[in-house]
Structure formats: C-alpha cells, structure tokens
Design a protein around this nucleic acid. Structure first.
Lengths: 353, 353
DNA sequence: CTGTTAGCGCGTTCAC
DNA sequence: GTGAACGCGCTAACAG
C-alpha cells in the first residue's frame, strides 16, 4: 500500500528529485537522454505524481470548474459537451463537478477553489440567491449559465455574469401561444419552492400572459409538484397531472414548466383516457432532446443551449483575458410547435369526453 | 488573490494552528468556547481549508471514488442516488467523477487515487478489457458494477469484483419472449464496436435465442448503430431504425439493446406510419424510468439497479473490512411486458400495411 | 486543554 | 545540465 513517490523514482534513476520533476513537467533544462531514462522508469513503476502535492505548489494551472446542479437532469448534457470542446480549444483543463440537491453550489466552489488553482467557475443550474460574502470570497470570475440575474441582491452585478433565457418572458410566450390556439382554461404545473427559482419565474410569465388577455387566473389550475420528490422528474409530472385530472377541474391545456414534467403529465393524461392534443393540449419548456422523440412530440420552448454554452465560455475568457467586464445576457428561446398542442375544440372541454 | 490560510486564522484568534485544526476537524480535545470563537472567525473570513494540503497529510480519509463512464446516460442516475445513501450510512465520503468517452477510466482512477486517499473504487459502465498492469497499480478494492466479468483475461478474478446482470442471458430471454409472441423476423439494433461490449453480449444472446428455436439469423436484420455518434442516443436509434425501415427488409419485431435506442426507434417507426405494437413490436433493454412513461410503454429488461447498487456497496465494504474476498455476481433482470410488444399478427408483415 | 514542530510529496529557487 | 534545500497548507504527534 505504500505509495511510490518522486524520491524513489529519483533514487532508481540515480538522479535528484528536481531532475525527475523537470522530466515530468517538460521542462527545458534537461538532458534528453536523462529524461528518456527517467520516463522509462516511471512507466515501469507505474508512478503517478501526487496531484495534491502538485496543486499545493503549482501556480499556473489553467483550470476551469463547471458545477452542475442536479445530476439527473439531462438538460445540461449537451451543454457540457460544448463547454468541453471549447475548453479543449483554449487548452484549459476542465473540472466537472455535480452538486447534489442538498449541497450549496457556492460552498462546493469555495472548496474546489482551494483544491485546484481555478481560473474561473461556471455554474449550470442552481439557485438564484447566494450569500454575497461567499460570492466575494470566490476570487475568480463567476459565470452563471442558464440562470438569469439577479444572483444576489446585495452584490453588484459587476461581480458575476449571467447567461440565460428570460424565463419569465419565454414562459409568457408559450402561454400566449396556447391562448392564441383558443385555450382559456390553461393549467400550469410548476415548482413551488419559496425562493426565487426558474419555476417561479415561469409561473410569473404564465400569470402575465393571462393578465394580458384578461383571463382570470384560477388558483385551481396552478399546480405545484411534490417538493419532497425530485422537482423535475417524470414521476412528479405524472403524479401532479394525475391529481389535477382527478380533481375534476376543467382545463383544455396543460403547461408544464419543464419537459420532464410534460412527459410524465402526458402519460398520466393518456392513462386517464384522454387524447393529446385532441382532448388536452400539453406544452413543455426547455427543448430537451426527448421532446422531439416523445410521442406525441412536445410543444416546447427550446433553449439555445449551444449558443448559451458557447457564449458562457466566451464571456469567461474575455474576463480572464481582461477584455471585458462581467455581462448579463439573455438569449431568446424558440417556440417549437409540435404535436402535443392543437387549437381548442369548440363546445367541448376536456372533462366531458 | 492571496489565499487565506490556517495560519492567519490562528493569528486572528490568538491561538496556535493546531488549535484551529482541531476545531476544524471536530477534535475532542478542545475548549468549546475556543472552538466557537475560532468557528466564528472562520465564518467571517470565509476561510476554507485547502483540501490538497489536507489530503497530503491525512491517512484516514474515508473516501470512495465512483467513476461513471458517459455523462449522458440516464441509466446510472438512480444508481448514484443509492450509492450516495449507502455511503452516507457508512460515513464515507464520495468522489463522483464522470469519465468522458475518450478517457480511460483506469487512468482516471490512477490519478484520483493519488489525489485522494481512496479506500475503494467503483466503476459504473465502461469497457470490459483493461490493462492488467494498470489494474494492479490500483492498490485498493475495485468493483465493476453493471459490467460482467471478465475485465481482464490476464488478471486473476480474485483481484476485482463484478456485479451485473448476465447481459447475454437476459438478452436471449427478451428474444425468447418475442419468439413466444410468434415473431420470427426479429430485427436487432445493437452496438458494433469491435471490442467486447454490452452490445456484443446482448447480440450473442439474440443469436442464441434464435438458434435455440431454429430460426436462421438474417444478416439484414442485424443493425449496428452509427459509431460516430453517441452509441446509445435517441438520434442513433431513430437513424438506425429509419435506415432499417427504408431498406425494405421485412420484420415484425425490433429489439433494441438499450431503451434509449428503443425510444428513437419508436419515433422512426411511428413517423413511417406504422403502429406499435400492431404493425411492429419494439423491445428495449435496461428498464430506464422513461420506458414506463413513454407512449407506448416499452417492453424491456429491467435491471435491478437498486439491488445492484446496494450489493456493489456491500461487497466493497466487505472487502475493506476484510470480511470477504472479491466476488462476481450476476443479478437476474426482469422482463417487463408493456405496450410496445404484441403477438404477431397472422398473415400480415410489417411491410404490407 | 493548547502550543510547537515535523513532515506529507512535490515544484522551485538557488548554487554548483 | 543537475542537485540541495526550502516551503506550499495542513495534520498529528509530542510537549507543556
């Protein structure tokens, strides 16, 4: 179990540790032959430098951390791919870290910053509000991606960047669309967390759209997912839709603030014997890949993840290179009209099949 | 940018560094009041201990690494949750690391082992064959989960554990089921990588089942997904199914070796104007959550992920505690009959609708 | 209960 | 081109 160290490699090669270190780090001042011999011994012994010790000394590590809130969310997968590509181009190393639901992403970031020499941190998902002290303690550029401002009310917007779609606006766009199809009794399924959240913002968009068309918001049509379960899961979508259907409240369209919820809801609606979109129109949000493969294909707001990802990286490097300050950018979402929504049928609500 | 260290905290509190260290590590021998004062200063300053330095010293870190191959695969999500719970019970820390497709999971493990004081490593997914030297260099218990043996032919099975379903056997079970429904022209969509892989094992199961029923394997019915794309993606399933449909080859059932492929295939079949299961039966493998929410629900082989996960952790700790040696366990999969498969219609193939 | 001190493994000055 | 020595931030003895 005794780990092999650089000292032993040095002994085996009959050189000093510093020479081994130079060989390891592609240093210039070293005899190619010496280097070759050292590298051979390293290969033989299977020696791997201790990264902890390295990080303790190193100052020039080009490293960026990406913290993702929620491992089960397929939403981020395509973003990660793009970010990885971009980082590769820039020759920066990437540390991917999943942040569990119970963890605070800022705490994780603080820890990571000590562990590695981070040049910047990208947050994917997560909360809107963070302690300003902690945020300030993070001495590297912070980019919040897919999270619109404000991240903290107590901290200047010049201290971090945000790149996202305007959840409230896009949400109202979707509801406007449903209204344009003739729907008036539009149910919404969202997240009921007390704090400011994507779910809350999208709910506001829903309310705005209804208000703009003088449609009275009906409390019974606003449904919150079970907060004791994964908020944006299939199960939660199913369960919440089932409860809605069984409550007997009439509605002709159901807007789910996430595609995952929409999938679950669709299944519940189908199981209840209704047809989508003939009896009930269903709309989602996010533009997950699956929304285009589900049956029916889900009408959704597609977030331009490629652009968001690329811009996220670009802004980060602009800041690192001192070419710009922090920015707050909104990208437009794309309303994808698919099979799950249709004009409201005349004289027939969902409940009297 | 100058990082705050334990020394400065000590100075600020007027105590020695060791006292701060003790406060930090919940050591017993410390005055509660002193500790409280120290913790306050720590909170004020936003100090976070440097983990690299910690790991350099610490010898008793109870830490387990979980390496996951393929971030986009939702298959592992539920496993991670269970493993996290179990680790919490055991009071062990968990390091989650995603291994990219181009990375070698063993190399990543080697690096991680140096960085942290690992007590064990769990591999989720990944290849079947690994260099025995590297495997040996890993001086901690290795558990390969959802990967059946052998991991290496050159290394003794007593050097690592495997917990998985018997892919070949379970696969043949599914094909047997399709045959029992009267299907004879059963297409398969699998992964065509040269090396030993889950896809290959499941293909063997398919061939075994056909052979057992004297059904001649038809080369045209064996379809490989595009290896330049993510193997088990919706797109790949769609694309491969589309090509199969357009080739004009007749078949009444399509068996996809992964649910993700099945979802994509279903969409392609529906788009081509066929009905599932009336015209074509579709079967998957894995038992993803989504298979129960897709429309139609997908007939699949459900892997007992909860049990596999729990057993994975159990075996690891049995080995750590010296209570047992390495083991190789197969769990049975569960054939879930759902809406996507039906008995073959008489006198009517999929092609003459 | 608390302070002093010796390394953990490595990278990096400096001399040589 | 190479080696010796120092210190990164921290924990764990060992004294006090």
């Amino acid at each position: 179990m005794s780990e092999i160290t650089i000292v032993e490699i040095a002994k085996k090669c009959g050189v000093a540790v510093s020479t081994v270190s130079r060989a390891l780090n592609n240093h210039a001042d070293i005899n190619p032959e010496t280097k070759k011999r050292i590298m051979e011994v390293i290969k033989e012994t299977g020696y791997v430098p201790n990264n902890s010790a390295r990080n303790l000394k190193r100052t020039d590590a080009k490293c960026i951390a990406v913290l993702i809130k929620g491992i089960t969310n397929p939403f981020f997968s395509p973003m990660i791919e793009v970010i990885e590509q971009e980082m590769e181009k820039k020759k920066y190393a990437l540390v991917l870290r999943h942040v569990e639901a119970y963890e605070d992403e800022i705490d994780v970031a603080l820890q990571l910053e000590k562990e590695k020499r981070l040049r910047g941190i990208i947050f994917l998902g997560g909360g809107y509000r963070h302690s300003s002290e902690k945020l300030k303690a993070l001495n590297v550029p912070l980019i919040f991606s897919t999270i619109g401002s404000p991240v903290s009310s107590k901290i200047s917007k010049a201290e971090y960047s945000t790149i996202a779609v305007d959840d409230k606006l896009e949400s109202s766009k979707m509801v406007e669309y449903l209204i344009s199809l003739g729907h008036k009794k539009i149910a919404i399924m969202t997240e009921g967390s007390e704090k400011m959240s994507v779910g809350q913002l999208r709910l506001q968009g829903y309310e705005d759209a209804l208000a703009a068309h003088n449609i009275e918001a009906d409390e019974d049509l606003i449904r919150y997912v079970d907060k004791d379960m994964d908020h944006y899961s299939l199960e939660n979508g199913y369960k919440t839709a089932k409860a809605l259907l069984e409550s007997g409240v009439k509605f002709t369209a159901l807007y789910c603030v996430s595609d995952m919820l929409a999938f679950g809801a669709c299944r519940a609606i189908i199981d209840a014997g209704y047809k989508i979109p003939e009896d009930i129109s269903v709309a989602g949000f996010d533009g997950l890949n699956m929304s285009n493969y589900y049956s029916p294909r889900i009408t959704t707001i597609k977030q331009p993840l490629d652009e968001i990802s690329r811009e996220t990286v670009k802004i980060l490097f602009d800041i690192i290179d001192g070419e710009s300050g922090h920015q707050h950018i909104y990208f437009p979402g794309e309303l994808v009209e698919a099979e799950s929504t249709a004009p409201k049928k005349k004289k027939k609500s969902a409940k009297n099949s």
